[in-house]
């Protein structure tokens, strides 16, 4: 019994790890390839989550809904809405230099959070949306459903990975890295820097929206606290830096490694005396903050460093 419990604990860790892997791949497109500093990951994640939830839930008097579309439509809608949000943001902010883009993206995440909390006709405010369907929810229930969902999440990870890898080795990706490494020379070579950055930002945001949708269908319930800006945004940054920014495999490995550490510390701290349990989550946050400092100083290229593809000479 202990063993099956452990097995399904592992399944739940892998599902969440897969969702983080999708987020990490998205950030890798924006930061690793394009050098765009997005500190508002949680905002786009939330947009995706709410879009998919609203599109797929049954009629409710508490929030917009009642479309009851199948889940694949929810995922696509999440990507489109998050992508369009990203497009609006990028249209205004993408010309800003790195530090300023960081400030602006923090602000955008904050405004998206304000909208989610305040516009209760759309999102039911802080009470959240209940009854978000799980795929094949009618056929399988309980733990078997988790296994099925695990497969679906990692199928998405695979699809996103293939897409990102294609982007990376394509001429488009090469141009992007040229812009990242030396903007002036890329501009001198006739590349439309702002246009490439806009595309990068939108693609990244759309993938973040997909991750949000996956998490909404996993938890079946969605409230503003599920998109705690700090935890989502910050963990994903630590994951990408640790895994190796610029490398798609590194992004996935980093996401899994950090998520395993995060979950393992949860097991350890849950055995502490009760008065320490509430404090333990702060200790974990502290440790993640210190881990980032360590990675930045001693381990900057990450677990799997970026390796530019060879230039074919034919």
């Amino acid at each position: 019994m202990e063993l099956t419990g452990l097995f399904f604990y592992l399944v739940s860790v892998l599902i969440a790890g897969g969702i983080y892997a999708v987020l990490c791949l998205a950030l890798n497109v924006q930061w690793g390839m394009g050098g765009l500093f997005n500190a508002g990951i949680a905002g786009f994640f939330a947009v995706g989550a709410y879009t998919s939830a609203i599109v797929t839930t049954a009629v409710s008097t508490k929030h917009l809904g009642g479309f009851e579309l199948p889940i694949p439509f929810g995922l696509v809608a999440a990507m489109i809405v998050a992508g369009v949000t990203g497009w609006v943001v990028a249209k205004i902010c993408v010309r800003l230099k790195s530090d300023y883009l960081a400030m602006a993206s923090v602000g955008i995440a904050e405004i998206l959070r304000l909208v989610i909390v305040n516009e209760s006709w759309l999102t039911n405010g802080s009470l959240g949306i209940a009854g978000v369907p799980r795929p094949f929810g009618d056929l399988v229930q309980g733990r078997e459903a988790d296994l099925l969902y695990l497969a679906m999440v990692w199928l998405c990870v695979l699809a996103v990975y293939i897409l990102c890898q294609r982007l990376y080795v394509s001429p488009w990706g090469r141009t992007l890295r040229a812009i990242r490494d030396n903007e002036d020379s890329a501009r001198a070579a006739g590349k439309d820097v702002d246009w490439f950055r806009l595309q990068t930002f939108v693609i990244g945001c759309a993938i973040m929206g997909l991750a949000g949708a996956l998490s909404a269908h996993y938890f079946k319930f969605l409230s503003p606290s599920a998109t705690e800006p700090l935890l989502v945004t910050f963990l994903v940054w630590v994951m990408l830096m640790a895994g190796g920014s610029g490398n798609n495999k590194g992004a996935i490995v980093g996401a899994l490694a950090i998520w395993f550490i995060w979950s393992a510390t949860e097991i350890i701290t849950s055995r502490l005396p009760p008065e320490w349990i509430t404090r333990s989550s702060y200790i974990r946050m502290l440790l993640v903050g210190l881990l980032l400092q360590f990675v930045l100083q001693k381990f900057r290229s990450g677990l799997i460093p970026e390796k530019s593809p060879k230039i074919r000479s034919d």
């Binding site: 500093f37 500190a39 790195s98 530090d99 960081a102 700090l230 910050f234 940054w237 630590v238 830096m241 946050m285 502290l286 993640v288 903050g289 210190l290 980032l292 400092q293 930045l296």
Partner: peptide, 9 residues
């Protein structure tokens, strides 16, 4: 900048 995010945390 990234380090200062960590310090904030």
């Amino acid at each position: 900048v990234i380090a200062s995010f960590g310090v904030a945390l």
